[in-house]
Write a protein that binds this DNA or RNA. Sequence first.
DNA 1: CTTCAGATTATCT
DNA 2: GATAATCTGAAGT
Length: 190
Amino acid sequence: MTSSRSRRSAPLPRSFYDRPTAVVARALLGCTIARIGGPAGRIVETEAYVAYDPANHAFRGPSARNGSMFGPPGTLYVYRIHQVHCANAVTRPGQAVLLRALEPIGAGLADARGPGRLCRALGLTRSEDGVDLVAGPVRIYPRVGPIGSVVRAPRVGIRRAVDRPLRFAIEGNRYVSSPRPWGRRGAPSP
DNA sequence: CTTCAGATTATCT
DNA sequence: GATAATCTGAAGT
């Protein structure tokens, strides 16, 4: 029998997140993040925060702020900085992928270029810290079509490990946040 | 208890 | 490009 029960496929399984963090960061591009019954967007930019990474909040082990980074793969880690929230998908213990920008799906999503705006657009605060991205109120779904080329660059806004190329973005996508060190697509090189 | 740095962003020059 | 806003978590005294 045909069914129109679900317009989206099943959420990404926990095993999706249980891989090296940079692999997950790359693989999340093109996937959809949605609140159940709420706004949704396509992930177009991420950053990996890995092991032995001094820019990682978990670099010095568990704390009151980063506790959810030590939960199961597929846990949401939300922290606050400078009066703004940022959201991450936990991969392996003490590692996570920062979600940096979304392309709107439908008309329900406000501007989500940049981690702070992304959280505001999805209504993510510390209340959502620790929720399960596989079965909780906010979930991530598999990519549907191709995403084209991926660009890599150093991460944004950090002061330690500034050169590691752990930022991933869909090349040429207009919803990727600034700065864009790879330049505009089609721009002449100096 | 006090000090300080920070995975951002809006606004200014 | 530079800086202020604004406040929390973490570390120091």
